[in-house]
Every structure is written in structure tokens, then in C-alpha cells.
Amino acid sequence: MRQNPSFTLAEVAEIRRIVDANPWATIVSHGPDGLVSSHYVVLLDDDHDDLTVVGHVGRPDDLIHGLGDGELLVVFQGPHGYISPGWYGDVPSVPTWNYTAVHLAGIPEILSDEENLAVLDRLVDRFEGRMPEPRRMWERPNDPAFVTRLATGTVGFRLTPTRVVAKRKLSQNKPAEIVETVIAELEAVGPYRQPALADEMRRAQQARVGGRS
């Protein structure tokens, strides 16, 4: 992802927020047969306060990716959407796309069976916990034999990135009044309504005014 100083996201806490809020990630590597990508849920590692993440792939994706043997790129995509030139007013302009994205790259560590089980357990808790009657991994009708058998079909990994590229292209290069107009259009009823993107734009605008990343 090409970086641009105007759109650089450098604050670790903000990058962690994007990763945590958008756990459905794209995993990319250069495997034995060339470039390959997969899609899995990836979470921040509870045992670290940096950008270390944990996740898993199903077998044989570990072999396809050569997991643990080379660099892995994990891509998180935040809110994004179309920006109409008509929202800029009567000035020369073209359409664009606003977005937030985080790229974490490094050589992953393969988790032990016990560590992988713990990550899978946490993964279920993270999403099932929001249900009115959660069905957690170790609860009936599941039994330990079923859970263990299921887990053996996965390979867990931990990635502490050695390269981080994070970017939020959210109209920071536009005057404040235009940014406010775009935010209002994204919140209004229409074909390109995207309130989550409007929230990210507002956050970026506040950071720009406050002099933060």
C-alpha cells in the first residue's frame, strides 16, 4: 500500500482500534506455488499491548501459505465508501474513495496445540458472547473430544509485525468545510450512505485539528 504523509496513521492505539473493530482479515503470502490469499478472523493478542495479532488457518492453508517459513501480510479493511465530486461544490473535482486500512507483515510464529485451542476459545467468546443465549465452545452439546478433533483441523499463529503500514484516506487534504459537507452526505439517506465512514472521517478531522496522528 503506497503511503502518503497526509494520510499516514501512526498512532498505535488508533491502529489497534481499527484492527479490533475489523477482525475479518485478508492473509497474503508467497507460497510454494506463488502468491496466495485467504480470509480469516484475526484478533489482537491479549498478552501484548502492541500490534501483535493471533489467528488460525484451516488445514491445508498452512501448507499453501508456507505458514511460519516466510513473511505473512495481514490486511485489515476499515470503513470505506464512494465520495462524489458533487459533494465538493462547484469546483473542478473527480470521484474518489475514502478508506482506512492496516497492513501488518512479518514471519508468524506457529502456536502450540494448547495455545491454538485458547485462541479458538477466545474467538468463539468474542462473537458468540453477544448472542442472547451464547453457545460457547466447551458447552453442550459440544464435548471435549469434538472440540479437540475440530481444533486439529486448524493451525494457530501469532504475528508480531516487523513492518506496519496504516493509512486513513478520509479527505484530510480538503478544507474543513468540505470535510463537514462530505460527512453530512455520508450520514444522509442516499445511495452512498455510510455512517461508519462518516464517523471515521470525523475522528480523523478531530485528530488533524488536535495535531495527532
Rank of each mutant, 00 (worst) to 15 (best):
Q3F: 00
N4C: 10
P5H: 07
S6R: 13
F7R: 04
T8G: 07
L9G: 01
L9W: 00
A10M: 10
E11D: 14
V12P: 11
E14A: 10
I15M: 13
I18C: 03
A21W: 01
N22F: 08
P23E: 12
P23Y: 09
P23M: 02
T26W: 13
S29D: 12
D33W: 05
L35K: 02
S37A: 14
H39D: 10
Y40G: 07
L43N: 15
D46S: 13
D46V: 09
D47R: 09
D49I: 01
D49Y: 06
D50P: 01
L51N: 09
L51F: 11
L51M: 09
T52P: 02
V57G: 03
G58Q: 12
R59K: 06
R59E: 07
R59V: 04
P60N: 05
D62M: 07
I64E: 13
H65Y: 08
H65L: 14
G68L: 02
E71N: 06
E71D: 07
L72R: 09
V74K: 10
V75S: 04
Q77H: 06
Q77C: 01
Q77M: 05
P79N: 02
H80P: 08
I83E: 03
S84P: 00
P85V: 12
W87Y: 04
G89S: 12
P92G: 07
T96V: 02
W97I: 00
N98I: 00
Y99N: 08
T100W: 04
T100C: 04
V102T: 07
H103R: 05
L104G: 04
G106T: 06
I107M: 14
I110S: 02
L111P: 11
L117I: 01
A118I: 10
A118Y: 13
L120I: 13
L120F: 14
L123P: 04
L123H: 05
V124I: 02
D125T: 11
D125R: 14
R126S: 04
F127R: 05
E128W: 07
G129F: 05
R130I: 01
M131F: 09
E133T: 08
E133K: 09
R135K: 15
R136M: 15
M137H: 05
M137R: 09
W138V: 03
D143C: 15
D143Q: 15
P144M: 14
A145C: 03
A145D: 13
F146D: 15
F146T: 10
V147A: 05
R149Q: 15
L150Y: 06
A151W: 00
G153E: 11
G153V: 06
T154W: 06
T154I: 04
G156W: 03
F157V: 01
F157Q: 03
R158V: 05
T160K: 14
P161Y: 08
T162V: 11
V165K: 04
A166M: 10
L170M: 06
Q172F: 02
N173Q: 11
K174W: 02
A176Q: 15
A176S: 15
I178G: 13
T181P: 09
V182A: 10
V182R: 04
V182N: 05
E185S: 09
E185R: 12
A188D: 14
P191R: 05
Y192A: 14
A198G: 06
A198S: 04
A198W: 06
D199E: 15
D199Y: 08
E200C: 10
R202Q: 14
R202C: 12
R203G: 01
R203I: 00
A204I: 02
Q206H: 11
A207P: 04
V209P: 00
V209Y: 11
V209Q: 11
G211C: 01
G211N: 00
G211V: 01
